[in-house]
């Protein structure tokens, strides 16, 4: 039944043809019958989706009108709706001179690096793990790789400091033993994009590896056997069978990452950068700027405004990317 991976392509074609013919049929039916047919086809699925949708509706959508706080000057006594509208004034601090440009540039640049590094490394690791056939050994690898995910960023920050401290830091110690001058890492912003990428990679490698590995484990082994019979070597198997089959997972992860490309993991920045002013030129991102500002100003309408801006632009980007995906691989579009 599943002879080769061409099957997937056929399935796509079949689906397109099917949906066209059924659309034609549908037009010919009377309304009530169509409704009955619809319920017949979708009823059970709707029921399955319903409990989850209800939870999501209650906890995410019911409070969502609160998003208007981004456009208001909230006063408790007046309530969310009674508070005064202020237009876009809560957004102003995000779009003034120099700083706006810098935080947006840093956010996009660093997140871009994170996405590329995470995707490539976790896919690569998953491929390697998939090649390990000793079950017990594989499990040990997986556990160990996953472990950094449990380590809080506070502790990651400690380790980074142990490595990069000026006085008594591990790396300066090594430099010293080669007769090199110690480097004052924490006052030179140029190094930090790399350090941030490595720290982030270390922390989340296991998480994404597990996702991709789960995708690979679900691949029918017969695909590989068929390929082997056709004379494919290991690399070709990975390239022509494994990667195409985990592509949907990669795409969904990329789409979600792109949606959140204006957001940053505040814990990462606060603990790794450790509040060092000198590092701001390359490491100040939207979230850290907003965080500092509202800590001082206590005006959380401004935080709401930033969140709205980040979400809005991210959403636009996702819609665009989703549209591109849909053009080339309709099955893998997010919506």
């Amino acid at each position: 039944m599943y002879d080769d991976s061409i099957y997937l392509m056929n399935a796509v074609k079949a689906r397109i043809v099917n949906s066209r013919t059924s659309a034609n049929k549908r037009a010919a039916q009377p309304r009530r019958q169509r409704l009955a047919a619809w319920i017949n086809r979708n009823g059970a699925l709707v029921l399955m989706a319903l409990p989850g949708m209800l939870v999501l509706f209650t906890f995410s959508y019911v409070p969502m009108p609160g998003i208007v706080l981004a456009f208001k000057d909230f006063k408790a006594a007046l309530g969310i709706w009674g508070s005064e509208w202020t237009g876009f004034s809560n957004f102003e601090y995000l779009f003034s001179t120099g700083i706006a440009l810098r935080i947006i540039r840093n956010t996009l640049f660093l997140n871009g690096l994170f996405i590329v590094a995470n995707t490539i490394c976790s896919l690569g690791t998953a491929v390697l793990l998939h090649e390990v056939h000793e079950r017990f050994v594989s499990r040990i690898y997986q556990s160990v790789l996953f472990f950094p995910y449990f380590v809080s960023w506070v502790i990651v920050g400690y380790f980074i400091f142990i490595l990069f401290g000026t006085e008594g830091g591990f790396i300066n110690g090594i430099l010293g033993s080669f007769g090199l001058e110690p480097v004052n890492w924490y006052s030179n912003p140029a190094y930090w994009p790399v350090i941030l990428v490595l720290a982030n990679l270390w922390h989340s490698l296991g998480y994404f590896t597990v996702i991709y590995l789960a995708g690979m484990l679900a691949i029918n082994p017969e695909y590989f056997e068929a390929a082997r019979i056709d004379g494919a070597n290991r690399l070709q198997e990975v390239w022509f069978i494994m990667l195409p089959l985990v592509r949907p997972l990669v795409i969904i992860n990329l789409l979600l990452a792109i949606g959140r490309i204006f957001f940053s993991n505040l814990d990462l920045y606060l603990n790794v950068i450790r509040n060092q002013g000198a590092l701001l030129p390359t490491t100040d991102v939207i979230d850290t700027y907003v965080f500092r500002s509202i800590t001082v100003l206590g005006n959380f309408n401004m935080a709401a405004a930033a969140g709205f801006f980040q979400a809005f632009v991210g959403f636009a980007l996702v819609v665009l990317c989703n549209w591109l995906v849909r053009r080339f691989e309709p099955d893998q579009a997010l919506f």
Binding site: E92, S96, I99, L280, Y289, R292, S293, V296, L297, M302
Partner: peptide, 17 residues
């Protein structure tokens, strides 16, 4: 002057050295 404070504080942070 909230907008200005947010920015001025960022500059101040950068030069706290």
């Amino acid at each position: 002057v909230e907008k200005e404070i947010a920015q001025v504080n960022t500059v101040a942070k950068e030069f706290e050295g």
